[in-house]
């Protein structure tokens, strides 16, 4: 049963959201100024919201802590000072002041990212791959390993040796082998790309269905939640 939403802050928000949704969905008929306006409003609101959250949830609580007890929270004073120095990046004559802050940011970020990638992904994944190929795991483990080797090698050869005809007898033989194996890898590549594209398309459909459900349920109340 259709019912107009009550004139409350939530009701106004629902109407604004519905209007923006319809503006963006109008691109289904053809791109227009209305659809572009909707997209620009969404992007701008997202950036503005992120900035507001950064101030409200990150900076302001820490400033309150420092104001209440500066000695007890002295590390925060240092971080806030380094953050202020970052603002000097906008001034050509004083941009060198931000070097220390940037160095700290990139240094810590790189150390965490590289260390995490090595010890959190590379080593455990290699170890798991070795463990899964231990003999005695059954025929499916062997088949899995064979497919993995064929696909990996084939894709690498396809990418590395496409268009290469080889020189000399050994080179030509290697080119023939790389070509045949590479064609197999190309098939694996096609299947993988197709699966990825299908997953992305399904994800987009899920997002669209969610917006339509919002319009039908939350905005127009055509069906109960």
């Amino acid at each position: 049963m259709f019912a107009w939403p009550a004139v409350t802050a939530e009701g106004i928000g629902t109407w604004v959201a519905a209007a923006l949704t319809l503006l963006v969905l109008s691109a289904a008929w053809g791109e227009s100024r209305a659809s572009r306006l909707g997209m620009a409003l969404l992007a701008g609101a997202a950036v503005g919201y992120a900035a507001a959250v950064a101030w409200h949830a990150v900076l302001w609580p820490r400033i309150l802590l420092v104001r209440a007890d500066p000695l007890g929270h002295w590390p925060l004073v240092v971080w806030l000072f380094l953050g202020l120095l970052l603002l000097a990046r906008g001034l050509t004559s004083a941009s060198w002041l931000s070097n220390a802050s940037l160095g700290y940011l990139f240094g810590v970020g790189a150390a965490l990212a590289v260390g995490g990638a090595l010890m959190g992904t590379l080593v455990p994944q290699v170890r798991a791959a070795i463990d899964s190929q231990v003999p005695g795991g059954g025929w499916w483990v062997a088949a899995n390993a064979l497919i993995l080797a064929l696909a990996t090698g084939g894709v690498l050869l396809r990418l590395a040796y496409t268009g290469w005809s080889g020189e000399g007898a050994v080179g030509k033989a290697w080119a023939r082998l790389a070509g045949a194996w590479g064609r197999l890898g190309y098939l694996f590549l096609l299947v993988a790309m197709g699966a990825l594209m299908a997953a992305v398309a399904l994800m987009a459909l899920a997002l669209l269905a969610a917006r339509l459900e919002f319009l039908a349920v939350d905005w127009l109340h055509l069906v109960p939640r």
Binding site: L112, G116, A117, M119, G120, T121, P124, Q125, R127, A128, S132, A195, L196, A199, V200, L202, M203, A206
Partner: peptide, 30 residues
């Protein structure tokens, strides 16, 4: 996974978009 689950052994379960679900399978297998 890299900063908490693996270094400290903390149990972790995940939610991902449909497009990324398959990519997380190696981490579940390990």
């Amino acid at each position: 996974i890299e900063q908490t689950a693996t270094p400290y052994g903390t149990p972790l379960v995940a939610g991902l978009p449909a497009a990324a679900g398959l990519a997380a399978e190696p981490y579940r297998a390990s």
